[in-house]
C-alpha cells in the first residue's frame, strides 16, 4: 500500500529550532523548505542546516526537501549539499514539464550511485504552480518512477490564472481536477495546496473536506496546529472502520479458501475495494481509533 501522506508540513529550512522539533507533531511528511521560506542571501546556510538536520536527527516520519527549481542559480547546489544526507524525498517546485523531473531524476541517480544509496531510494514529488504545468500534469506525474505525488502550489498558480483566493474555492476547480486525475492516471498521490489562514479552523476544515471528496490524498500544511485537523477529516467513521474490517476478513477468508470470487453481503469485492479498506484501517490505526487492534 502507498505511504500515507495526509499531512505534508512545510518547515522553514533556516530555522534550527523548527528543524529540530519538526518531527514531534505527527505530520505524515515534513518538507524542509530551502525555496520560498529562505531569502536568497541565506540559501547557502539553509541547505547546510537542512542536510545536517537530516543526518543527525531521527525523524519519525517521511522527510522531504523542497529545493529551488533546477533552473535557478540555487537548485543544483541545493541537491549537491542535501542529497548526500539522504532525504526520503525531493520536492520540486514550479514543475512545468517532464524534462524538469528528468533533470532532477538524473542528478539524484548520480548522487545515489556516488553515495552508495540504493538506486531509486530517494523519491520525488512535484508541485505544479502554473497553467502550463497543469496542462502537462500527466507527463510530469509519469516522468520518473521516483515520482510519488503531485501537488498544487496555490498562490503562484492563481496569479498565473489571473484570479485570486475565494472562500468557495472555485478558482482551484480546474487545477485540482486536472491534478487528481493526472496523478491517479500515473498511479501516484495528489496533494492539495496550503491553507494560510491558520486561525480559521472552520474554513480549513471545509477545504479539507472538499479536497478529500475530490479525491486528494492529503494536504500541505504550514503550521503544526493544522495537522490534527487534516487527520480528523481524513479519519474514517466507525461505520467505515467496521465495514473495512469485514471486507478484509472476507477477502482473507476467500484467499485462504482459494476462492476466486469474493463477496460480502452479496456485493462483489475487488481490488480497489480491498485497497480502500486497507487505507481506511491505516488511517484509523494512525489515530489510535481501533483500540486493541494488532
Amino acid at each position: 500500500m502507498a505511504r500515507m501522506r495526509r499531512s505534508m508540513m512545510f518547515v522553514p529550512g533556516n530555522n534550527p529550532g523548527m528543524l529540530i522539533n519538526a518531527g514531534i507533531y505527527g505530520a505524515d511528511t515534513i518538507i524542509f523548505c530551502v525555496e520560498d521560506a529562505v531569502s536568497v542571501y541565506e540559501k547557502d546556510a539553509a541547505r547546510q542546516l537542512v542536510a545536517n538536520a537530516i543526518r543527525n536527527i531521527k525523524y519519525p516520519c517521511e522527510v522531504a526537501v523542497r529545493i529551488n527549481h533546477i533552473s535557478t542559480p540555487y537548485g543544483r547546489d541545493d541537491l549537491a549539499v542535501i542529497l548526500p544526507a539522504k532525504p526520503d524525498m525531493i520536492r520540486l517546485p514550479k514543475a512545468e514539464t517532464a524534462a524538469d523531473i528528468l533533470d532532477v531524476d538524473e542528478i539524484i541517480t548520480a548522487a545515489e550511485k556516488k553515495c552508495g544509496f540504493e538506486a531509486g531510494s530517494i523519491k520525488m514529488m512535484a508541485a505544479i504552480e502554473t497553467c502550463k504545468g497543469i496542462m502537462n500534469a500527466y507527463e510530469i506525474a509519469s516522468a520518473s518512477p521516483r515520482m510519488e505525488a503531485l501537488a498544487i502550489g496555490g498562490e503562484d498558480y492563481l496569479a498565473d490564472l489571473r484570479t485570486s483566493r475565494t472562500t468557495h474555492g472555485d478558482e482551484f476547480l480546474a487545477a485540482r481536477s486536472q491534478i487528481v486525475v493526472a496523478a491517479r492516471a500515473a498511479g501516484i498521490q495528489a496533494i492539495d495546496t496550503v491553507y494560510s489562514d491558520i486561525n480559521n479552523e472552520e474554513g480549513f476544515r471545509n477545504e479539507i473536506t472538499r479536497i478529500k471528496e475530490l479525491g486528494f490524498d492529503g494536504k500541505s500544511v504550514i503550521n503544526p496546529r493544522q495537522i490534527k485537523i487534516v487527520h480528523d477529516v481524513f479519519a474514517p467513521t466507525q461505520k467505515e472502520i467496521d465495514h473495512a474490517e469485514r471486507v478484509l476478513k472476507a477477502y482473507e477468508e476467500a484467499l485462504a479458501k482459494g476462492s476466486g470470487v469474493i463477496s460480502l453481503n452479496g456485493k462483489m469485492i475487488d481490488g480497489p475495494i480491498v485497497a480502500r479498506a486497507e487505507r481506511a484501517l491505516a488511517y484509523a490505526d494512525a489515530l489510535g481509533m481501533r483500540k486493541g487492534a494488532k
Partner: peptide, 8 residues
Amino acid sequence: LDCTIEAR
C-alpha cells in the same frame, strides 16, 4: 545542537 553548530 552540534548539527546546527557544524552547519553554521
